[in-house]
Design a binder for these strands. Structure first.
Length: 433
RNA sequence: GGAGAGGUGGCUGAGUGGUCGAAAGCGACGGUUUGCUAAACCGUUAACUGCCGCAAGGUGGUUCGGGGGUUCGAAUCCCCCCCUCUCCGCCA
């Protein structure tokens, strides 16, 4: 959530930001409500604190008083004050929760260089790297390749768990693991701490990261009779890992690379370009997460580093891609800025299309404020909220699409990118016997 | 899953209804002593937050795992939840 003080300081700027973002129109009213409610809360708080001071004084005096008569007079006074405080305290609590309710609906501010726009055509293409291959045969899409080489079994997935589930088999199973190993070890080499995270998390953690597990448009599965959800990304667990902590400035930046399964309901996202592995209910993902000091300079630099790593990985996989600077309307609530990598997928659309494979966001203090993750700046007293960033190292299902479709051969088999071969026991081709 | 024990400041750990934001020790910081270091001694040392102040600071409030409750008054009593440890059961 946003800093309440920042909203009070400039509500108009916050509202303009909401207009640029693709948020429900009534979020503007949330901004006004927050300002108005906070004004009232201040006043009530003042009164409550004043009453409490007197209450404390009376209680203390009662303890010291030996004379029974004087004592019972003090007790009576205490009772009176208690009733008074109680009533006001109710008001205060109501105001608090009202403010919170409005506050969490307001999205993060937006980086001044992010393109302004409501729809994805406003995304700015920063660069294209690599050239889509020209095939001297008719390329297949990954679903066909997967079937022909007995790599992906959607029928069995449907039988066991329903539409949107699948089995990876044979070399695809090995490829999946190889990609995980490759991504993890690439990141470890760059100083990231490797982590295997839980695949479930509490609702409060989900909310802290900026997910809304309840409500009709939710993207996450909830586990019945618990307050747990299946995570949609390790961003949730990695961010939650340090919830409530106060870190030393000297520790920062803390860089983690986490492996988790990801579960998404993908409600209302059928058809179109979601064929095969592209949009599924479960996949595995290697996710990067950074906690850094609370300045835009620090987080901006980290953001570039995450993007560079994502590019490095797809270059190593020998897959052409483009980089997008995501427009205001396409940013999720917590993101201050976001870059996507879209990999070339020859089997997508007619004649190939770019499809999203990674995404990296600078969330500034939007998540850490709610998760209460702070640090002590050196040479200053007090604490500040850290800035958090996340980025996909590799999302397995989509990386597999890119590899199968880009590296397929005329004979129907698929080459293993050189960088991956060490993790496949030296194997250089998929589907061979 | 069952039965017990426990969660207190940077750490160890006392505190079972009243003057407790909390003993003591350790650590850290400042000072005295000292040729330097060490030791000794003296002092300081929680976070968040409202108001006042240019500031140093002052003055309120909140916080002893989290949330409710009892009470004039709760670290201390009651209820719910979370977590940790021990034992038993189950299990990859």
């Amino acid at each position: 959530m946003l800093d309440l003080k920042a909203i009070l300081a400039n509500p108009e700027a916050v509202k303009q930001n909401c207009r640029n973002r693709n948020v429900a129109p009534d979020v503007m009213e949330d901004v006004d409500a927050v300002v108005e409610l906070e004004g009232r809360r201040k006043g009530v708080l003042q009164q409550v604190e004043d009453l409490r001071r007197r209450q404390n004084e009376v209680a203390q005096a009662t303890g010291k008083e030996k004379d029974p008569e004087a004592r019972s007079a003090l007790v009576a006074e205490g009772k009176r004050l208690k009733a008074e405080v109680g009533a006001l305290d109710e008001t205060l609590k109501t105001l608090d929760s009202e403010i919170k309710r409005h506050l969490v609906r307001i999205p993060n501010l937006t980086h001044p260089d992010a393109p302004i726009g409501q729809t994805e055509d406003a995304n700015r293409e920063l660069r294209k790297v690599g050239t889509p291959r020209v095939f001297d045969f008719t390329p297949r899409d990954h679903v066909e390749i997967g079937k022909a080489l007995d790599l992906i079994d959607f029928e069995a997935g449907g039988k066991v768990a329903g539409h949107g589930f699948y089995f990876l088999k044979n070399d695809a199973a090995m490829l999946d693991l190889a990609l995980q190993q490759f991504a993890m070890s690439t990141l470890v080499r760059r100083g990231f701490t490797p982590v295997v995270t839980p695949d479930l998390a509490r609702v409060s953690i989900l909310e802290g990261i900026g997910f809304n597990p309840r409500g009709p448009e939710t993207q996450v599965y909830s586990v019945e009779n618990t307050d747990l959800c299946l995570v949609g990304t390790a961003e949730i667990t990695l961010g939650g890992m340090l919830a409530g902590e106060v870190l030393d400035a000297a520790q920062l930046p803390l860089k983690y690379v986490g492996l988790s399964h990801c579960f998404r309901t993908e409600a209302g996202a059928a058809g179109r370009a979601s064929r095969g592995l592209y949009r599924v209910h479960q996949f595995t993902k290697v996710e990067m997460f950074i906690f850094t000091e609370g300045t835009l300079e620090a987080s901006g630099a980290m953001h570039q580093e995450l993007l560079a790593i994502e590019e490095e990985i797809f270059q190593a996989l020998e897959v052409p891609y483009r980089v997008l600077d995501i427009c205001s309307g396409d940013l999720g609530g917590p993101a201050y800025r976001k870059f996507d990598l879209e990999a070339w997928m020859p089997g997508r659309g007619t004649g190939g299309e770019y499809g999203e494979v990674t995404s990296t966001s600078d969330c500034t203090d939007y998540q850490s404020r709610r998760l209460d993750i702070r640090y002590k700046p050196t040479g200053q007293k007090g604490t500040k909220f850290v800035y958090t960033l996340n980025g996909t190292a590799v999302a397995l299902s989509r990386a597999i699409i890119a590899i199968l479709e880009n590296h397929q051969r005329a004979d129907g088999l698929v080459n293993v990118p050189r960088a991956l071969q060490p993790f496949m026991g030296g194997q250089d081709v998929i589907g061979g016997k």
